[in-house]
């Protein structure tokens, strides 16, 4: 079956190997006989609600992020409608921040976000850099872990009733204090974790593919299991790194 991915600003927001996440989605779809088509949606392009089953937005350096911020405001309606209609979304690092309500920079200036996620981000004067391990429960009773790497100056403060992507086992997370990392609204996920995130956490790639298939074709699609030994080994190494040196531990 066919899945259409909208990759937002791939030529601007690609700092942390975001194409690795796209490669994992493509291959894992293809290995199950599904066809994943990735369409670039960049500066000046229209985002048509209903066209995409999955949106992806990655991270950029401050300069690139500033270059796309205005354009993203023009796409705000399109992104919100796409998500409201049940398409899946993964936003990583800088892209995650842009999808909140606002970002306050070091000079105190407020930059508007597009409000897909219920949080505000405030720049701090130190960066939170290191390996991270999270515990997640995206489906009731199904506990999984995510291992990745974070590097951000922004402190993201979720609304009290917002749902995080996961609980921090090791690392800084959204703000270095709350023990919460990322944010979830239905099928939309945002996180600071790169690494890239999906190669060493293939279960999350499959979760996103499942949501995307459900959006396009309805029902509860089943994805056949794959041989993920190498993925499991990479996950284990990354998780050990988080335990020994995440959250600023040296």
């Amino acid at each position: 079956m066919r899945i259409v991915v909208g990759h937002l600003y791939p030529d601007y927001l690609n700092i942390y190997a975001d194409r690795g996440n796209i490669a994992v989605l493509s291959r894992r779809a293809a290995w199950r006989g599904h066809e994943l088509e990735v369409r670039s949606v960049s500066v000046g392009d229209a985002l048509e609600p209903g066209e995409h089953d999955l949106l992806y937005i990655g991270g950029g350096q401050d300069r690139e992020q500033a270059l796309v911020a205005q354009d993203l405001l023009a796409k705000a309606g399109g992104v919100r409608e796409t998500v409201a209609a049940g398409a899946a979304l993964l936003a990583v690092c800088g892209g995650y921040q842009l999808l909140g309500r606002s970002y306050r920079d070091l000079h105190g200036a407020d930059l508007p976000g597009i409000g897909v996620f219920p949080f505000d981000t405030v720049a701090g004067d130190t960066r939170m850099i290191g390996d991270v391990l999270l515990e997640c429960e995206l489906e009731p009773g199904v506990h999984r872990t995510l291992a990745g790497f974070e590097n951000h100056a922004g402190r993201t403060h979720l609304d009290a009733d917002a749902e995080p992507l996961g609980r921090v086992v090791a690392g800084f997370g959204n703000d270095g204090e709350s023990g919460r990392e990322g944010c979830r609204v239905g099928r939309a996920l945002g996180t600071y974790l790169h690494g890239p995130l999906l190669p060493r956490n293939p279960w999350l790639a499959d979760w996103l593919l499942t949501q995307a298939l459900a959006h396009r074709h309805g029902g509860v699609p089943e994805l056949e299991p794959l041989a993920d030994e190498l993925e499991a080994e990479a996950h284990a190494v990354s998780a050990r790194r988080a335990a020994t040196r995440g959250g600023g531990r040296r």
Partner: peptide, 30 residues
């Protein structure tokens, strides 16, 4: 410490010619 950069390297031109890749080091699996 962040190994994500390897995903930004264009290793692909090596792939058609390779019959064996020995991946090693602390992050060999990645």
């Amino acid at each position: 410490r962040d190994v994500s950069w390897i995903w930004d390297v264009d290793f692909e031109p090596l792939i058609p010619g390779l019959t064996r890749l020995v991946a090693t080091g602390d992050r060999a699996a990645e």
